[in-house]
Nucleic acid binder design. Structure first.
Length: 807
RNA sequence: GCCGGUGUGUCGGAAUGGCAGACGAGCGCGACUCAAAAUCGUGUGGGAAACCGUGUGGGUUCGAGUCCCACCACCGGCACCA
């Protein structure tokens, strides 16, 4: 058969779709498999070769599983809210809806050309109001349960453009647009209280099959640490205690992971934004210097402030002191930007002898350094290792960190000076953007009722039409400029109220999309309970490494929340997660337009065919590893497919005996390798087998059918074509996967290596079931007089090796 | 700095502790051709050989690319996280 991919690929793509070959069956009693890939953002640039790799792995797996009589759900959709469509709208005035629809249509067509076995009847689009209705519904559930709340935060703000800037748009403290100085401004924003789920998200990790590196990244991202909160009393310069307005002693609260070093605390540091400064401004005698330092800090971006290898800066708060609750000593308080407001309490106890940052600060500002753990040389640097506790009263002599920390927490609690506690690096999730093209946040602000939820029956809260997509003045969302949208009645008391005009961030729609695929057209609930119970959890989720912290954690959080609510039946959404490696440009660099090394998958489909693209992408190497694109290697795969087409010219009615063993071995290997995502070796096995077929010069009709079935997950179009030609009934995509006969996967005779003292000397051919004596005899015969000295030991590992130890 | 990962021919990469380099590419040689491309066949780690070869140095083992210890290099993530 001549290989004409231009003819056969569109033919089968159309036929699969016309016959709904890949539609998943919700009513089935068969075993199910839910394979999920990260749905794309439908950018104007179109399908990237990286998308292809991300989807092809599971596509091959799903294609095989369907043939193994498993009910497979393999859906696709579009994560279509986001900035590019909005920026394009600002530039051209074309509504994001129009651009998004165009891009989705284009993307869909491209995906079809690659021959993915998606269930196209379940396509979802996060910007569809029937979809975001449920995104808003889940948000309201969170609001109802106290998980969505509004709080102040500091944002990057350009006073000249009156726009809130992202970190990326305000690098170097300058506005990316007008280059004036960016300031930190306080703003009320929506948060999701993900920190409340931190421990559940950590525990859940132990129940799922994620690769170790992905689990580790999530653990690091959550960043749980245990330690203690300690309250330091404050005094004036003369040592008189300071009382707050409420008459209680004013205290400074800190978090530490090493409360056992309290006797080594010689000063304290608060973050520049710490509220204690304003509160006690009247008592701080050098407020001018403090204010100057704070304004200097506020000009720095997060990036500058967290730059490592930087000299410590700060200002002492003159006029106030703290009292070490253990030693009773009066210690100075500093303001310094090496302490972050966002972690712990925004204040620390400094133990310069045992923390390098505190040590550097103490050296720069002349603070005392008191050693409390033996083992280092504190005249040179801080000692952060273990050792015997000294200068620490009741802790002296402790050598175990755990014990000394536990003892100190006991004493703190006895004296009412503090308590054990836990901290997370993960912060609550800032859940809003001042943008148009996102889900409107369904909240109304009423002067008398506060923040009130839009009633569930009024969902979806639709995006209004706007003329102008530019952000509003003062950094508001474009929605703020539409009075008909903003002005409304309070759902609670009926008085005049104003709508929230911010929209949700891009992460919202993707946090639950895998649930909607299960029941995409349901208008009563986000998905039918029975269907959820059948399909959930997702059996295998593949995507990029760039999403294993944020998206993967966010969606696990939403899912766990829905589980606690009783809305879904599994605590975790994804049983198994994998991540494909990047396809690099031919030059070995990451593909980028500016480098001009981008490979367009549709160019490859045009020139070589989708089957070649598919086979090559999965043959490139370890699926999880990055590898550069190589056109020559691609041509090798094309050659392989032509050789497959050529098999129809050498097919015979009778089976070819000598191919039975190799064929059954391949059935075993290909099946096992696809299941383990080792696509490269599965394809290599198929290439090896075709070499043997051509060496035999012919192949039996049924043998060829079995062979193309093995090929079909990788090159489905040519497989269908040959299957049809050979008289196969229906689609090969639905045909039964071949089964191997274990007895045929082993040869009667085997060739094994013969070693003397572990060094290979030659090989022998022996019956597979030869016993030790027979194997040794054959080996000695082969070695002849090369075997010298006294034989000490003879080792025969059946089917593997003979090793003779001689001296 | 912390956490995780990876180091194998000319290149992409194979190898449940058991013949290192499967498979593909590249390259060499041959066939076909007036010639080239395509195709087919064949060879291809180094070394004349004994042997030597999986980042480096040690160890465990009859036997190590694979397991253990130390180090080096590169990649990814987090990062003044108290």
């Amino acid at each position: 058969m001549k290989y004409n991919f231009k003819k056969i690929e569109p033919k089968w793509q159309k036929s699969w779709e016309d016959n709904m070959v890949f539609a998943a069956d919700d009513e089935s009693t068969k075993k199910k498999f839910y394979g999920l890939v990260e749905f794309p953002y439908p950018s104007g640039a179109g399908l990237h070769v990286g998308h292809c790799k991300a989807y092809l792995g599971l596509d091959a797996m799903c294609r095989m599983l369907r043939m193994q009589d498993i009910n497979v759900l393999f859906p696709i959709g579009f994560d279509a809210f986001g900035l590019p469509a909005e920026n394009y709208a600002i530039k051209t005035g074309i509504h994001p809806r129009i651009v998004t629809d165009q891009n989705i249509a284009h993307f869909s067509e491209q995906l079809r050309k690659v021959g993915f076995s998606f269930d196209w009847s379940r396509v979802i689009d996060t910007t569809d109001e029937d979809y975001y209705k449920w995104t808003q519904w889940i948000f309201l559930k969170m609001f109802e349960h106290g998980l969505a709340f509004k709080d102040k935060t500091l944002v990057n703000y350009c006073p000249s453009c009156k726009v809130v800037l992202s970190n990326e748009d305000s690098q170097g403290g300058k506005c990316d647009i007008c280059h004036s100085d960016v300031i930190q401004k306080s703003k009320d924003v929506w948060y999701l209280r993900i920190t409340r789920y931190a421990d559940k998200l950590l525990e859940g990790l132990e129940t799922v099959q994620f690769p170790e590196n992905i689990k580790q990244q999530q653990v690091n991202w959550i960043g749980r640490s245990t330690g203690a909160f300690v309250n330091f009393t404050l005094s004036d310069a003369e040592g008189r205690q300071i009382f707050g307005e409420d008459g209680n002693a004013r205290k400074l609260r800190i978090y530490t992971t090493r409360p056992d070093t309290l006797f080594g605390v010689t000063f304290m540091v608060v973050a520049p934004e710490h509220p204690v400064i304003d509160e006690l401004a009247g008592r701080i005698s050098n407020m001018d210097a403090v204010r100057a330092y704070r304004s200097e800090c506020s000009k720095k971006t997060e990036f500058e402030r967290t730059q490592l290898v930087k000299d410590k800066t700060g200002v002492r708060l003159e006029g106030i002191c703290a009292v070490n609750p253990m030693s009773g000593k009066k210690i100075p308080i500093f303001i310094a930007d090496y302490v972050m407001m966002g972690y712990g309490t925004g204040a620390i106890m400094a133990v310069p002898a045992h923390d390098q940052r505190d040590y550097d600060f103490a050296k720069a500002f002349g603070a005392d350094i008191v050693e409390v753990i033996k083992g280092g040389d504190i005249s040179k640097e801080a000692w952060s290792g273990d050792g015997e506790m000294i200068n620490s009263d009741f802790l002296n002599g402790y050598t175990n960190k755990k014990d000394s920390i536990a003892r100190m927490i006991e004493v703190l609690e006895e004296r009412g000076a503090g308590e054990g506690g836990v901290q997370y690096k993960m912060k609550d999730w800032a859940f809003n953007r001042q943008r148009y093209w996102g889900e409107p946040i369904p909240i109304v602000h009423c002067d008398s009722c506060g923040y009130v939820a839009v009633p569930y029956e009024e969902l979806p809260l639709r995006l209004p039409e706007v003329e102008n997509f530019e952000p509003g003045s003062d950094g508001e969302s474009p929605l703020a400029k539409i009075p008909e949208f903003v002005n409304c009645k309070c759902p609670k008391c009926g008085r005049d109220a104003k709508r929230e005009t911010d929209t949700m961030p891009q992460w919202a729609g993707s946090s639950w999309y895998y649930l909607r695929y299960i029941d995409p057209h349901n208008d009563k609930c986000f998905a039918d309970r029975k269907k959820l119970e059948y399909w959930m959890p997702v059996d295998h989720y593949n995507g990029g490494m760039e999403h294993v912290t944020r998206h993967l954690i966010y969606s696990r959080f939403w899912h766990r929340f829905l589980y606690d609510l009783g809305e879904v039946n599994t605590p975790e959404p994804y049983m198994k997660r994998s991540a494909q490696g990047l396809i690099l440009g031919p030059d070995g660099e990451k593909m980028s337009k500016s480098k001009g090394n981008v490979v367009d998958p549709l160019d490859i489909v045009d020139a070589y065919g989708a089957d070649t693209l598919r086979t090559y992408v999965l043959f490139m190497g370890d699926y999880a590893a990055s590898a550069p694109w190589n056109d020559s290697s691609l041509k090798g795969c094309r050659k392989f497919l032509e050789r497959i087409a050529g098999l129809t010219d050498i097919v015979t009615d009778n089976e070819v005996a000598e191919l039975e063993g190799p064929l059954h071995k391949a059935i075993k290997k290909v099946g096992e390798d696809i299941a383990a995502m080792k696509f490269n070796t599965a394809i290599a096995a198929l290439m090896g087998l075709i070499n043997e077929i051509y060496a035999a010069g012919r192949i039996g009709h049924d043998q060829l059918i079995a062979y193309i079935k093995l090929v079909s997950p990788f090159a489905p179009h040519i497989a269908e074509e040959i299957y049809e030609m050979l008289g196969g009934s229906g689609f090969i995509a639905k045909a039964a996967w071949p089964e191997y006969d274990a007895s045929k996967t082993v040869d009667a005779t085997i060739e094994i290596g013969v070693q003397i003292n572990g060094k290979l000397k030659g090989t022998i051919v022996i019956p597979r079931d030869a016993d030790q004596a027979a194997a040794i005899t054959a080996a000695r015969e082969m070695l002849g007089d090369r075997l010298t000295g006294n034989v000490i030991k003879e080792i025969y590992v059946p089917g593997r090796i003979v090793n003779i130890v001689a001296k």
